[in-house]
Design a binder for these strands. Structure first.
Lengths: 192, 192
DNA sequence: GTAAAAACTTGATATAGATCAAGTGTTTTG
DNA sequence: CAAAACACTTGATCTATATCAAGTTTTTAC
């Protein structure tokens, strides 16, 4: 499955053969069965993880035991807990597989080495971080200014396809509403 | 007021005198009166802006005319609209001064030049972006899992001092509730 | 220094969305 | 392939927070 990551690199950067090989030398391939954890609350996250296939979800569990989905990540995107990684502190999140999935992992030490030694790789990583931040900003704005229905319409517009792969309960949680509310909204918008 | 930015740089990086001078050569000092705009919706944002004094707020206005505060930024922090900057598209946000404020601006072209030519500066910028992203993630989590009261308590705990400088109406908007609700929560929590 | 504007509080009422509950359909798994 | 577990729907009711309204306090600006 490394080819998919290689294709991603070729698309996002211009690398010499030596650089490509160097990057690949650090890659760890990991497969996850549906529902399998990549990270559990309390663990310290130590990787940078690229998804070549499947779908993962990042969520937290509050004192009442309710789950809150922070994000979904699918193939050709990255996942992990940056806060736990940066401060090397126990994670407040769980990450698990929504579908059978395949990942390319780098230990963060190796990843930082790559950033240092391969300028184009570093530039790519910064560009990703920029976009992640912008996406997070937009999510905050949506959560502040949209009604439940608007949140749903915005979601399916922004991420068409997600709705087909991810159980409604999880999408409802991601959007900050109950599954019942989402079910009613879907019924209502289907009519129109 | 450049000294405050210089102190920030000295604190966050190790620079040669030449590098320091180089950075300063691009700095633009800007003063803002309370309520004055730094950026208005529809404008394209072209700077990187560091606050040496005061407090700014970033907000959007929805179709019904309601304002939604996306963030506050105070001295020793950065502000701007990264989405507008990165894609050079009209901003959906307004940024204005909550108090009389002073900024150090860099045009983004110069800023990128600095990132390219001064590695320590580039590293600092990446570290800021990391932290900004983590803060945004945490804000999303809070908005998904907290009640109105928990949001307020989390806010004053995380940003003590903000509550004293920023009108309650704006804080309420930042927290995604009405001013009336915040007023009632404050009354209630004061009793305890 | 005073009038106007803004910010905050408090009460009454409304409502979007939550919760509880029960039924149906659909995967998963031994 | 059967039954348990899970996902979704629908209805009835509840509740946290919004909205509307009026009064008070604080800030702003000439």
């Amino acid at each position: 499955m490394y080819e998919i990551f290689q294709k991603y690199l070729d698309d996002k950067t211009t690398l010499t053969q030596a650089e490509s090989d160097y990057i690949q030398s650090f890659a760890i391939i990991k497969k996850l069965r549906k529902k399998q954890y990549l990270l559990q609350e309390g663990d310290i996250w130590k990787y940078d993880a690229f998804i070549t296939k499947g779908c993962l979800r990042t969520y937290s569990v509050d004192e009442k035991g309710s789950e809150h989905v922070n994000s979904f990540s699918i193939e050709n995107w990255w996942t992990g807990d940056r806060e736990s990684l940066l401060y090397q502190q126990p994670s407040r999140f769980n990450i698990d597989a929504v579908e059978d999935s395949e990942l390319v992992l780098f230990t963060h030490d190796n990843f930082e080495l790559l950033c240092k030694e391969v300028p184009a790789f570093n530039a790519m990583v910064n560009a990703i971080l920029q976009k992640s931040f912008i996406a997070a900003q937009n999510r905050i704005q949506a959560s502040l200014s949209f009604t439940a229905e608007e949140k749903y319409l915005n979601f399916i517009n922004k991420y068409p396809g997600f709705a087909l792969r991810i159980p409604q309960t999880m999408i409802a949680s991601y959007l900050g509403m109950t599954p019942e509310t989402l079910s009613r909204i879907r019924k209502q918008t289907a009519k129109k």
